[in-house]
Design a binder for these strands. Structure first.
Length: 308
RNA sequence: GGCAUCGUGGCCGAGUGGCUAGGCACAGCUCUGCAAAAGCUUGUACAGCGGUUCGAAUCCGCUCGAUGCCU
């Protein structure tokens, strides 16, 4: 029996959570999250995690399953989620995946290459190089260790440079030599669905949701997390702006405007991520339940038939 | 009514005769273990009209508009 994962993507605040639950109920499935911020159990309001009721009604995976103090990466997620799905599909035929993090979604749907484990000291050291000698030092080092990748990376992007270098250094082989190998086979097929709306509508929903988060107590949540502001998990829209406010750098009003602005820009990047992906079936966010489910059901049937 | 100052791209803001500041926003884009991260690309705009000049956002005049002061 072919297993099918319905993968739902779309810009933040467009209504993915709600739609995912509609799908889960209709197809009687669990929901798997691929949202890199909803993983953290210490964050609730600012990450727009599903409500307690929603979590109670529909089984969710990878929602608040780790701590902001944990080290977690796409690689961990990809492995963990793939294993979880394998188990899940032993007794189920359809699953729902929702997520706002393009990289995490794609890692699960399309696979990731295998990379050797990198000791954290190597990254720390490279961060030190960046700080002391500047990005040029990283560029030169990469040029020496992996000329091929050097010619195609964003040379101005320290994250990309450091990642490539840490692989080169820890493995003794060029980063690019690990790329493009055959990915681990997925034991499921997927239907990729994108929620779509006019830009103005998305932005309006974002602005309103931010106001709602504030009413729900985002300020208090952020204040409680403030001591941990240096953790990567807290380098998150909705929190970092408030941290700046706590430090007296900006007023609360400005902080709120910044949250809205940064959320809009985040939504824009999410749109860019999937705009050129031909697998995506784009559906308007405002469809009725039937109009929404029918085309998805159609695609699922096509998949099942194609298999035979 | 008089005098004075000012009027630069969506916003902020440099620039006092020639070599298209810059920042922010918007828009577009990149992405294989920090991804709600990180990075990249993009605007010849000088209130209007006329004049001086080889050449004006920069000088002169008028008009319009804003602000301040005076009667």
């Amino acid at each position: 029996m072919t297993k099918v994962l319905i993968a739902l993507v779309g810009p933040t605040a467009i209504g993915k959570t709600n739609s995912s639950i509609i799908l889960a109920k209709h197809f009687n499935t669990d929901v798997f999250s691929a949202d890199s911020r909803q993983f953290f159990k210490e964050m609730h309001i600012g990450t727009a995690v599903p409500s307690p009721l929603e979590l109670k009604t529909t089984a969710h995976h990878f929602i608040q399953h780790i701590s902001i103090f944990d080290t977690y990466s796409v690689g961990d997620f990809e492995r963990e989620a793939r294993e979880r799905l394998t188990t899940y599909f032993k007794s189920r035929d359809i699953g729902v995946l929702v997520g706002g993090s393009g990289l995490y979604m794609d890692a699960l749907l399309y696979g990731l290459d295998d990379f050797p484990h990198v000791p954290t000291e190597i990254r720390e050291e490279l961060n030190g190089v960046l700080e002391k000698k500047g990005i040029e030092a990283l560029q030169e080092q990469l040029k020496a260790l992996d000329a091929k990748y050097y010619s195609q990376v964003d040379l101005g992007n320290p994250h990309r440079l450091i990642r490539a270098l840490e692989i080169c250094i820890s493995s003794g082989k060029p980063y690019s030599s690990f790329l493009g190998s055959k990915k681990k086979a997925r034991d499921f097929k997927f239907v990729l669905v994108g929620l779509h709306a006019e830009r103005a509508i998305i932005y309006d929903r974002i602005n309103k949701r931010v106001d709602q988060m504030l009413e729900n107590g985002l300020l208090e949540e952020a204040r409680a997390l403030y001591p941990h502001r240096h953790l990567n998990a807290l380098n998150t829209v909705g929190y970092k702006e408030l941290f700046n406010h706590f430090e007296g750098k900006i007023s609360l009003e400005i902080a709120i405007e910044e949250i809205k602005k940064n959320t809009r820009r985040f939504a824009k990047r999410q749109l860019t991520w999937y705009r050129k992906n031909k697998d995506v079936l784009w559906l308007d966010h405002n469809l009725t339940k039937g109009e929404f489910i029918d085309p998805i059901e159609g695609r699922i049937k096509n998949l099942l038939h194609a298999k035979k």
